[in-house]
Design a protein around this nucleic acid. Structure first.
Lengths: 270, 270
DNA sequence: ACTTCATTGCGTCAATATGACACAATGTAA
DNA sequence: TTACATTGTGTCATATTGACGCAATGAAGT
């Protein structure tokens, strides 16, 4: 079997890096899988708030989720990793497909046409960018402080927004973000969370705040500790964490071997 | 926004119904979303075995999952319902997206070329059917006795196969079926199962067998009953079920109101 | 230096859920 | 009538969970 996509793969990556919108618009049809896109809901945790990384669109008041297209010879999950790398600078991020959004009229082509027009770009009515896209929703968990937000070709800037105070979002991106959050809340019941959202070393109260923030619910401090420790995925370190104004809490880190085991197997009930 | 797909929607449906392969092959490019397909793992329960509905491919020894493409103006989930309706005759089936399979070389175009060639159909190398497809995996739960298996254009017949004794499957369909099963096993931990897999009235042992079959594990009869009743989704009826050679067991049915509530909310752990 | 106080570590206890198993009742077949 | 596999219902020990007590810590205030 041939690999027809390969010879156009490399030049297209350069196109994206050069941020040359016009070339992207012209070549996109050739280098990307048609009809298919992906959108990422990137969660970070900062100052006891759950944040989502968003892009402020050029020539429009709306914001949007970081997203992209899949190269013709590229694995879909790797395309998501690539998009994440481009927006955050991070590699090997925890990424989870959570839903495909496939309603025929998710998008309003006039909306996109107007935006491009404001940049002096006039495209034919049947241009590939205006066609219908089925989008694959991913959510990602990243460590807030490691992220270097980077806008894409169609956005002015890229920044964190509080998940409970989202701005006006393009298309169905608010729905996508909402479903990502509720999926995350559900996954919390059966899978360990925290690695990739927290620093390498963290305190028990920090971890609890993370859970409380995601679940939007208060938890009992002592019961939380008992339960989370029973998973056997934590290692207690020396008790540093001096800066605080109170009793110095222990520092913990994840036992990655056991963490990943728990991630994979989940918490069985039967 | 126009609806360009609409005027070609109806004729294409007829094409499929006529089982006119050539027209399908020629028109497919125009009526379907390119690059995107869907595959359904349809589970049924019969004689205490979990079954999967499979198609025996024409001109090949392999079998395959019921699948299809998405019309240009069709919702993706509805496309899956349509495929299910075509294969089983059933509507409003319980359908669940579980994964997108997006590796670039899932498919071997020569394989499909050979099959068509045996039907005297010779297509260009760059024909749309030979291109790469990203497929959306769905699993469905249906009541075995209500299904009327119906083959599609590319298959000789359509029949149930034991999930533990699958035949040689095309492409990555074995992997897709496997992931569907493990997804189902996981969902069993947090969601009620049984409605749409069992008859309207069923006995506790029947329900238990279903769980045991899906989980591939023996469960204690008395503990099972206690736990499943604690969900509050069952209604006990009169004790009919006479045919049996032993003590007549009670019949149950699902309290659909509570069943769907439990389906939606899941079983929370925090 | 002493006190204050929010916070942390480490418990207890009752209520509930779970796993393992006993026993009587039922209904067909021998 | 008896045998027996199967079903309905229960018990008991153990594990898990929810609610809460209390002493220790350490920066801030006096």
């Amino acid at each position: 079997m041939g690999r027809p996509g390969e010879n156009i793969f490399k030049p297209s990556l350069q196109i994206v890096n050069k941020k040359n919108i016009k070339d992207f618009i012209v070549e996109g049809l050739e280098v990307y899988l048609p009809s298919l896109s992906l959108d990422c809901v990137i969660f970070g945790f900062h100052e006891n708030q759950l944040k989502v990384l968003l892009l402020k669109m050029k020539n429009a008041k709306q914001w949007c989720l970081p997203g992209g297209f899949v190269f013709k010879d590229e694995d879909v999950d790797e395309a998501a990793q690539r998009v994440l790398k481009e927006r955050t600078g991070l590699s090997k991020i925890f990424l989870q497909q959570f839903n495909v959004f496939g309603k025929p009229r998710r998008s309003d082509s006039n909306f996109h046409r107007e935006i491009l027009r404001k940049d002096g770009i006039e495209l034919a009515d049947d241009h590939w960018l205006f066609r219908r896209f089925v989008t694959i929703g991913y959510y990602a968990l990243v460590e807030y402080s490691h992220v270097n937000p980077e806008p894409d070709n169609f956005s002015d800037y890229c920044t964190w927004r509080d998940v409970n105070d989202l701005p006006d979002l393009m298309m169905d991106h608010r729905q996508i973000a909402g479903e990502a959050l509720s999926t995350l809340q559900t996954h919390l019941n059966y899978h360990p969370i925290g690695y990739s959202l927290l620093p390498a070393k963290f305190t028990m109260p920090q971890l609890q705040k993370l859970y409380e923030t995601i679940l939007n619910k208060k938890l009992d401090r002592r019961n939380f500790q008992r339960k989370i420790l029973s998973y056997g995925i934590l290692k207690r370190l020396q008790e540093v964490k001096k800066g605080g104004a109170h009793k110095a809490p222990y520092l913990y880190s994840f036992d990655l071997r056991k963490y990943h085991k728990a991630l994979k197997e989940g918490l069985q009930s039967w």
